[in-house]
C-alpha cells in the first residue's frame, strides 16, 4: 500500500497537569474518509488542532504528505495549510463579510484571479452546497446548518487535498443532519478528498467513513472499518458503538461513593 497522507506517531499532549494524549498512532491514506471518535472530553478537537499545526505536541510527530507539521517554518506551515481545509464546529465564518465574500475570502487572499473568475468559482462552490441564492446574506442571518454549509463551501474553495470536519453533525436538526452527511460524502467522493471527521455521532460517522479510530484515555483503543468495530468483542467498544449509558465507562464521574458524600454534611460554597 502507498505511503499514508497523514502519519501520527507516538503523539503526547498535556494541558497543564492533565494528559490528553499518551501515545496516539494514526495512519490516514489518500482518498479515505476517516472518523475519529470518542466520548466527549477525549481531546478530539485538540487532535484536530494538532494536525492543523495550531498546537504543538509535547512529544511525537504529525506528518502530512511527508512533512513534519511541527518542524515547519511559519511560511511552510502556511503553505501546507493552503492545501488543508478545516470545518469548525461553529463554522467560524467572518461575521463582517457576506456569504459570498466569505467563500471568496481564501481565493482573494491566496490567488490573483480576476474578480470575474472568483465570482464564477464562488457560485460553483455555493451551488455545490445548495446556497447559491443565499450569497448576499450575512452570517448572522444564517441558521447553524446553513452556516456550516457555507463554511464547507469556503473550506473547499481552494480545492484542498484534505479536509478536517470538527463535529459536523452536532446540534443539527434531522433534515440538515442528512444534508451535511450527504455533502461530506459527496465532497470526498467527487473531489477525491481525504476527509477526517471528528465526531461522536456514531450512526452518521459509521455511514460515511471507511475507517474509524476510537479514542479513549489518551490512546487509540480500537480502529478499523465500521463493520469490524460493530463486531468487536471489547465491552468498551460495544458500549460506545451502541450508546449504552453504563458499562466500562461509568455514568458517574469518578470520586467518592454517594453514601459517603451524603454523610459528610454540607458543601462549602460561594453562595453562603
Amino acid at each position: 500500500m502507498n505511503e499514508p497522507l497523514i502519519k501520527i506517531r507516538d503523539l503526547h499532549f498535556a494541558r497543564g497537569d492533565r494528559a490528553i494524549f499518551k501515545g496516539v498512532n494514526i495512519d490516514i491514506h489518500r482518498g479515505e474518509v476517516v472518523a475519529i471518535m470518542g466520548p466527549s472530553g477525549t481531546g478530539k478537537t485538540t487532535l484536530m488542532r494538532l494536525i492543523g499545526g495550531q498546537l504543538k505536541p509535547d512529544r511525537g510527530t504529525v506528518e502530512i504528505d511527508g512533512q513534519n507539521v511541527h518542524a515547519l517554518s511559519h511560511d511552510d506551515l502556511y503553505a501546507l495549510r493552503k492545501r488543508m481545509g478545516m470545518l469548525f464546529q461553529s463554522g467560524a465564518l467572518l461575521t463582517d463579510l457576506s456569504v459570498f465574500d466569505n467563500v471568496a475570502f481564501p481565493l482573494r487572499e491566496h490567488t490573483d484571479l480576476p474578480e470575474r473568475m472568483i465570482h464564477d468559482l464562488v457560485l460553483m462552490k455555493l451551488q455545490a452546497v445548495g446556497l447559491r441564492n443565499a450569497r448576499r446574506m450575512m452570517p448572522a442571518e444564517l441558521s447553524g446548518g446553513m452556516a456550516r454549509r457555507v463554511a464547507l463551501a469556503r473550506a473547499i474553495a481552494l480545492d484542498p487535498m484534505m479536509i478536517i470536519y470538527d463535529e459536523p453533525f452536532a446540534g443539527q436538526d434531522p433534515i440538515s443532519m442528512g444534508t451535511v452527511v450527504d455533502l461530506v460524502h459527496d465532497v470526498s467522493d467527487a473531489m477525491g478528498l481525504t476527509s477526517i471527521v471528528v465526531s461522536h455521532d456514531i450512526k452518521e460517522a459509521a455511514e460515511i467513513s471507511d475507517t474509524i479510530f476510537l479514542l479513549s484515555g489518551g490512546k487509540v483503543i480500537e480502529s478499523g472499518s465500521p463493520i469490524k468495530l460493530k463486531r468487536s468483542t471489547s465491552p468498551w467498544v460495544q458500549q460506545f458503538m451502541q450508546g449504552l449509558p453504563d458499562g466500562p465507562v461509568p455514568f458517574h464521574y469518578p470520586g467518592t461513593p454517594f453514601a459517603e458524600d451524603l454523610l459528610s454534611g454540607s458543601e462549602a460554597s460561594d453562595y453562603d
Binding site: 478545516m86 461575521t95 481564501p106
Partner: peptide, 22 residues
C-alpha cells in the same frame, strides 16, 4: 475578542491567512 471566541481567528489561521497580518 469576539473574533477569537467565535473561532474566526483560528479559522483564518487554518485558511493559511495569518490573523496577525490580516
Amino acid at each position: 475578542g469576539l473574533m477569537k471566541s467565535t473561532e474566526q481567528l483560528s479559522g483564518m489561521e487554518m485558511m493559511a491567512v495569518d490573523p496577525m497580518r490580516r
